[in-house]
């Protein structure tokens, strides 16, 4: 029986999430045994035109060309999984969505007229149907392996979408909100990082985007009542997942300081 074909595509991103696949050093040989890496420019110059059994898509849609290309990728993929905050929520580059794009270009580029980009950075799922979204900036290696295993064996990935607080308590970390008064996005942030920052006594930055039932306004209201400034709340929700709906809406409720 032919091995299932895996493809990895890159759109606007730092590449970190697709590199997570190469970071699977211990598991990489087992992976290569089970799947045919048909398209993965970060790893091999071999190009197999597909169709692919599983396509992993890293990055967001930021150009007119991207819009066309993701449709082609979708057409050649049986299953399409988006990986990382760029692909699932537009990434940090989606900060431009709520601002004047031309003005931002003028700050960054000496010759902004050479740049041919859309005024927005958007998630892949806004353009084509996506079978599964794997969150994170960057994604977790364990979750990536879990998703690939699940798709290889036709089962549902064991990836939770609840708040980061569960993993934080399971790890035994001391809650930074309660014990230190640090505003933390853990209660509204999707599981997956293993409660990394609270483990180092820092508040959660929301790298995995909104959880499945994020009470963002309740959280902001409480932090504001405890002395946080509106601009601080705005910035907290305006990072790697700024264009994820719940975070975008919450950020828009607060002004700058």
């Amino acid at each position: 029986m032919a091995k299932p074909k895996l493809a990895v595509f890159k759109f606007a991103s730092c590449d970190g999430c697709q590199l997570t696949l190469l970071d699977c050093e211990d598991e990489l040989l087992a992976l290569a045994d089970r799947i045919d890496i048909a398209y993965f420019l970060e790893a091999t110059s071999r190009i197999d035109g597909g169709p692919y059994d599983l396509s992993l898509v890293d990055g967001s849609i930021t150009t007119a060309e991207d819009v066309e290309r993701i449709r082609e990728v979708r057409a050649r993929s049986k299953r399409l999984v988006t990986i990382g905050a760029c692909a699932t929520a537009g990434g940090i580059q989606a900060l431009r969505n709520a601002r004047d794009h031309a003005e931002m270009l003028s700050y960054v580029y000496a010759r902004p007229e050479w740049v041919d980009a859309l005024a927005t950075s958007t998630a892949i799922a806004r353009h084509v149907e996506v079978d599964f979204e794997l969150r994170g900036c960057p994604i977790s290696k364990q979750q990536l392996l879990e998703v690939i295993s699940a798709f290889l064996h036709g089962r549902r990935p064991a990836v939770k979408s609840h708040a980061t607080c569960l993993e934080c308590k399971m790890k035994g970390h001391v809650c930074v909100v309660v014990a230190k008064g640090v505003p933390c996005l853990g209660p509204v942030t999707h599981d997956g990082c293993g409660a990394l920052c609270p483990g180092w006594a820092r508040g959660c930055y929301g790298c995995f985007g909104p959880s499945d039932a994020p009470q963002t306004s309740t959280l902001s209201r409480y932090y504001l009542a405890k002395g946080a400034r509106p601009g601080q709340m705005k910035r907290l929700f305006s990072s790697f997942n700024a264009d994820a709906e719940a975070f975008r809406e919450e950020a828009s409720r607060h002004g700058d300081d």
Binding site: E27, A30, L31, D33, R34, L145, I148, S149, A150, L152, H153, R155, K160, S161, H162, A163, L166, K169, M170, S211, D212, A213
Partner: peptide, 20 residues
């Protein structure tokens, strides 16, 4: 399951009636 599909694991983990 692992990548090979040759081993399956069943794990019990803390959950909560508050999760969606």
């Amino acid at each position: 399951t692992d990548l090979s599909g040759d081993e399956a694991t069943r794990t019990r983990r803390w959950d909560s009636c508050f999760t969606f």
